[in-house]
Design a protein around this nucleic acid. Structure first.
Length: 816
DNA sequence: GTACACTACATACC
DNA sequence: ACTGGTATGTAGTGTAC
């Protein structure tokens, strides 16, 4: 027997003699790598109809206990059955816990259970590792004091000793210990290749970066850099890569988009060159699961693709216009990639290779630093959701919410609902949209002294306060229900269900950790508070997501209906007090402060809050010196979701305008931005108009750099799927033709050039940024600059089209 | 041959 | 397919005159 302190990192399962076992890889507190072998009694639930007689339950239970099938890997059977009182969707039932020999056959065995008294069979579809964590409560990235028997010298489990660890134990007992600190051993990697398509062309070099470790390996050229290591060919390059991974013995091997590029590329080349890519601790090769996107798994080492985690957890907060390593690193680290122009490798001068190696190393370094930067978030999410790092880092928002629910259901004695089968997903999607948020119709104009109120976690607080969820939804009107009109009347029980309780807890924790963070700021507390915020925000979307286990369209539609009614009530209450409401969107209201004091505003807020239902809360977002709203391009109404504000700190906040849209050229965006800024700061249009005049003159004199005129549009689907060939699709076709990297998600860049044929389509005048040509002045004036500013200046009765366009061109010089 | 309505698409807001 | 609906606005496409 041996006692150690242990932190679980990676969970693997294996079969031995027809039974399922776990091999949990982690560290002890001395940094030694440990493998922990454990088994799990696997089971699922068979739930009885209400009122089934005790005798019948016992009979059926005995019958089920006899089930045997020919399973995937030999004979499989029910081991035993036990009867419990359980809850399912908030209601109490008798249920049989059906223990089986091999979890892989759970579905098949469940199919054999056919009794009219049994109305649901559940939990045969919970991933095995999730099941293990739920049952044993040996959670990822928590510390445990472990007692285990040493397996290293035994032949047990068919030679488990072949795993490259310091110690292998069979788990006997454990208890959780309080310890929050864990710094994993991390190795970042990045490759450069001859081709962008997986496996086509050689890998030219691989960089590896860890703590006090930097390496670039290549067979292509020599270098005097001390981080450089020369190998003789590509095969040896891959071997060296494996060698250094093993030598570093990382807990985590991280890359940026490495699920989709680096790892599959290496695997493909290794297969071609017949090199053993035995990265796993059991010397296995990485295994890829082909879902919508590839997922590469290495046994015992967590392969973590930073891109995926950043996409789900960070992207909505990032300002970057793409999620490419360069943009994300610049925003999060303040560091950019090196500049390297990709040219065919035979055209790289021998003295240029050093630059290429440096470029490769920098990518590795950025990836490593990015990992360290966001580790707090990954760590917090892992411990909050209680899912293994490997899976967690790849989860979508709905996966995160759902797994939080699954891992918290036992507090409510609940049996987990199943995943919707494909047929119900189809039906759910056919139900179509339901009515969503209310947006206030603004009147275009420049306003002074604005106040912004907003509801804190509005949808979440409504779901909690009105108990909206699948389990509380009732088909028929009953007593003790909440009635909501979503086009038809729907009803929800007032007996608080687990969904509302869980969400209430999430919102409460978010508040606590935010408070704690403000008192005592640390990356970990910030990450914790942020994780709960994201979970709370996503819970409403989860209710309306067709793939959710706890999907409830009625609950989602009701949350939206109540939100509409609550914001309208708040608006009318503010108006009744004599304020003029200017704008509002979903959960926010903006109105004029007028001659009232800040204290008046706070009193108003308190008064509204005293009447709000449940845990709903209205908050003061801030005061603003000025705000501008414009009309829509078509029609005289004020445009929704487009406005700009000047804060008390003189900071400008711009929403929805072309300035913040990446599919407009920089010149139009910068010009509009400057004009908004000048108008907001001056309170009139004089200087803004001067500025516009200057820019337009530059444009007409062809003094604008083509870089300012590049339009960027993302390719959202494969080129062939487009019904309508817009400029960016046409450019994408052109790029593909000349062998450039174009794939779904690529940001296509182009500019519009002059052409003799006035009638030609815009796409026919679109050119690649480095393609020769002169910019189309008329296009940039009429389709970029003027549209971006006309509705703003229209507020001051200025018609920019008359001022600056066409034959009135000469008037421009005379103006002002 | 042009004008206009409609559709497809991208991207924002919350 | 991988949380929801609301909204603006461009460019292409189709059709009426």
């Amino acid at each position: 027997m041996q006692n150690i302190n242990f932190i679980p990192i990676d969970y693997n399962n294996f079969d031995y003699e027809g039974k399922n076992y776990f091999n949990i890889i982690g560290r002890d507190d001395k940094g030694k790598r440990i493998s922990l072998i454990d088994n799990l009694e696997v089971y699922f639930w068979a739930i009885f109809n209400e009122g089934t007689k005790e005798k019948k339950i016992n009979e059926i239970s005995e019958e089920i206990a006899e089930i045997k099938i020919r399973g995937k890997n030999g004979d499989s059977k029910v081991l035993k059955t036990e009867i419990y009182e359980k809850n399912f969707l908030g209601k109490n039932y008798k249920a049989i816990k059906v223990f089986i020999s091999n979890y892989k056959d759970a579905r098949e065995i469940a199919k054999k259970i056919k009794f009219k008294e049994i109305f649901k069979i559940r939990e045969y579809d919970i991933p095995y590792t999730t099941k293990y964590i739920l049952e044993k409560k040996l959670r990822p990235l928590n510390w445990y004091e472990i007692e285990g028997s040493v397996l290293s010298d035994s032949e047990e489990f068919g030679g488990i000793q072949n795993i490259e660890v310091d110690l292998c134990l069979k788990l006997e007992s454990f208890k959780e210990i309080k310890k929050e600190d864990f710094h994993p051993k991390v190795l970042a990697f990045d490759i450069e290749t001859e081709n962008f398509e997986i496996g086509k062309g050689e890998i030219l070099m691989i960089s590896l970066v860890g703590e006090n470790f930097k390496k670039v390996i290549s067979h292509r050229n020599n270098s005097h850099h001390n981080f450089f290591e020369k190998v003789k060919n590509e095969a040896e390059l891959i071997e060296k890569f494996v060698y250094y991974v093993k030598k570093n013995s990382p807990d985590i091997l991280t890359g940026y988009f490495s699920d989709g590029f680096d790892l599959p590329y290496i695997k493909s080349r290794a297969e071609k060159l017949k090199v053993e890519l035995n990265l796993g601790l059991d010397n296995s090769t990485p295994k890829f699961r082909k879902g919508a996107v590839l997922t590469g798994r290495i046994n015992g080492i967590v392969h973590l693709d930073l891109f995926k985690f950043i996409k789900t957890v960070y992207s909505q907060y990032l300002q970057s216009e793409t999620l490419k390593l360069n943009d994300v690193a610049e925003e999060l680290l303040g560091e950019k990639k090196h500049v390297w122009e990709f040219i065919p490798i035979n055209k790289i001068d021998s003295d240029k290779w050093d630059e290429f190696f440096e470029y490769n190393l920098k990518d590795g370094e950025l990836t490593y630093k990015l990992f360290q930067k966001i580790w707090a978030d990954i760590y917090e999410f892992t411990t909050i959701i209680e899912e293994p790092l490997f899976d967690l880092s790849r989860y979508s928002m709905s996966n995160l919410v759902e797994n939080y629910i699954i891992h918290n259901l036992d507090k409510y004695n609940e049996i987990t609902e199943k995943k919707p089968p494909n047929e119900s997903i189809k039906l759910r999607r056919e139900e179509g949209k339901y009515e969503g948020a209310f947006v206030f119709q603004p009147i275009a104009g420049l306003y002074e002294n604005l106040v912004f109120f907003d509801f804190t976690s509005m949808y979440g607080s409504i779901i909690v306060s009105f108990n909206l969820s699948k389990e509380s939804y009732i088909e028929k009107k009953d007593k003790n229900v909440t009635e909501v009109d979503i086009g038809r009347k729907v009803y929800f029980s007032k007996d608080t269900g687990f969904f509302s309780k869980m969400l209430k807890d999430i919102i409460k924790k978010r508040k606590e950790y935010k408070k704690e963070y403000n008192k005592n700021p640390s990356p970990l507390l910030k990450a914790r508070s942020n994780a709960f915020k994201l979970l709370s925000n996503a819970s409403y979307g989860y209710l309306g997501f067709f793939g959710a286990r706890y999907y409830c369209r009625e609950a989602a539609a009701s949350a939206a209906a109540i939100a509409r009614s609550q914001i309208k009530t708040a608006i009318s209450n503010i108006e009744k007090k004599g304020y003029k409401v200017v704008y509002g969107d979903t959960d926010s209201i903006s109105f004029l402060q007028g001659n009232k004091t800040k204290k008046d505003i706070h009193d108003l807020l308190d008064e509204i809050n005293s009447k709000l239902p449940g845990i709903m809360e209205l908050d003061l977002e801030g005061f603003f010196k000025r705000g501008i709203w414009v009309t829509k391009r078509t029609g005289e109404f004020g445009a929704k979701k487009k406005y700009a504000l000047l804060g008390e700190d003189d900071k400008i906040k711009i929403k929805g305008f072309e300035t913040v849209r990446r599919d407009w050229c920089d010149l139009a965006r910068k010009t509009q931005n400057k004009i908004l800024e000048l108008i907001l700061k001056d309170g009139n249009e004089k200087r803004a108009l001067e500025y516009l005049k200057k820019i337009i003159n530059q444009l007409k004199r062809r003094e604008i750099n083509i870089k300012e005129l590049i339009i960027r549009t993302q390719l959202k689907k494969p080129i062939s799927n487009y019904k309508s060939i817009s400029p960016h699709v046409s450019i994408a076709e052109k790029m593909k033709k000349i062998g450039m990297d174009v794939s779904v998600g690529t940001l296509i860049e182009y500019y519009i050039s002059e052409s003799n044929d006035k009638k030609s389509l815009i796409r026919e005048r679109a050119k690649l940024p480095d393609e020769k040509g002169i910019y189309n002045m008329e296009y940039y004036l009429k389709n970029q600059i003027l549209p971006a500013v006309e509705n703003i200046l229209e507020i001051f009765q200025i018609n920019v089209n008359e001022l600056f366009d066409g034959e009135r061109q000469r008037g421009l010089v005379e103006y002002g």
